[in-house]
Design a protein around this nucleic acid. Structure first.
Lengths: 232, 232
DNA sequence: CGCAACTTTTGATCCAGCGCAAAGCGGCCA
DNA sequence: TGGCCGCTTTGCGCTGGATCAAAAGTTGCG
């Protein structure tokens, strides 16, 4: 039998990688792929959690906000990552596409039932969730204790490491040149700063010769060691 | 057969609650209880993750720090909570007892093997981890976007809600009076503030009649609605 | 090409929270 | 009972980053 998963680009990296062909056929039956355009929101904070999904392509953000409109981005989601809140009634974050994105979506109830019958899938999901938890807690140190410059330097270093994995070249080192899927305001929302501070810091790093900014969204790291030093 | 778990105070709340008697006997064989005195550290950030544990009694903190000694508390652990990093080689946070504590510890390898053979246990652990991830991400909003007063008010409200669950009275509402298991410096490390700011904020809330501070570690919430308002 | 809408940069000023220093308080032990 | 030690509070000046305002790019579209 031929199914969509056969040609899936994240087949070997997403949580589905632990499933055999029969299981994949079954999972495929309850899911469907969906395209989301940049800026569109897939689920809203506080809404009841109706969907979960695997990301096939593109970059999305997870965010929470205060009543008066302040926003904090709490996670960035790349291809092969899992989104949504299985086994829970309420989505705790808003999920929004930053670039055009393709996701493989499931009704939460269907996915929950499927997962409970496939321990290997739950195991994989557990591992991912544990890793995400470590990442989130590590980011809390940045938000709570680092200066604006330390935040910015840490951010650029993390981006240069995480954006590489999505390419096809396996285990290449961190990229020295990359395109951010964010505008300045979004960088501010990730780091807990204002857009003006973000702009000033990037300009300073450029003037100091630590990075270059070939265009609005591109960054070249010229002196990684100095950047690392400024990350604290 | 009689085992320690028979009399365990968190038997029905910890992840073990999904195990039947035989399974519990097997799990009991690979674990042992251990007492930790206040201030003692159970595992260190960056060290290889040798242990996991269930908390039986007491309160512990999870923390990370920068090279130059700044610290951020990234989680508070109460009875029935799980600590440690299963399925991963490295502990990402330091775990330290805030009060005298009793934990039920397992060698990580033993626990991993046991968990893989008991999907229901992994499922329970997955649910817990998902909840913790939501909590951590929610805390990121506080760290990145809230003012000092909003942080303090949010903290007091959260404490009044979380400290209640550990008592024996089921589903009592939030407490109006409670003892914090933290000193001022630790509150600062939770909120990403300095000890002086924490002290000033508490004094202000007291002078404004929103709370009372019967002793160093005790708090009484006098006007919960106003406190809620100040939490933003 | 040229105009309108949006994003980013730059400049100027302000203030919340930090850092330092000293005083106050409470608990513990002899 | 008193004295010591560690924790907390308070005072004061400073500064990193926010806020407000305006100029300079960018992008899209007729």
């Amino acid at each position: 039998m031929s199914i969509a998963c056969d040609t899936c680009v994240v087949r070997n990296r997403a949580i589905c990688s632990v499933l055999d062909t029969d299981e994949l056929v079954a999972l495929n039956r309850i899911g469907r792929t969906r395209t989301i355009s940049a800026g569109q929101t897939l689920m809203w904070e506080g809404e009841d959690s109706a969907l979960v999904a695997n990301v096939l392509d593109g970059v999305l953000k997870l965010s929470t906000g205060t009543e008066d409109g302040r926003e904090q981005i709490v996670g960035i989601v790349y291809p092969a990552d899992f989104i949504g809140r299985p086994f829970g009634a309420r989505a705790q974050q808003t999920v929004t596409a930053l670039t055009e994105a393709r996701v493989c979506v499931f009704a939460r109830g269907d996915f929950d039932a499927f997962a409970r019958e496939h321990p290997a899938l739950e195991h994989k999901l557990l591992q991912r969730t544990l890793t995400e938890l470590d990442r989130a807690r590590h980011w809390m140190l940045l938000l709570g204790r680092k200066s604006a410059m330390e935040k910015m330097a840490s951010f650029l270093l993390e981006m240069s490491e995480r954006l590489v994995q999505n390419g096809c070249t396996p285990d290449a080192g961190p990229l020295d040149r990359f395109a951010l899927p964010f505008g300045r305001q979004q960088i501010a929302d990730i780091l807990g700063l204002t857009i003006e501070t973000v702009s000033r810091l990037l300009t300073k790093l450029k003037n100091d010769g630590v990075i270059d900014l070939p265009s609005r969204r591109e960054v070249t790291i010229l002196q990684r060691d100095i950047l690392r030093h400024r990350a604290g």
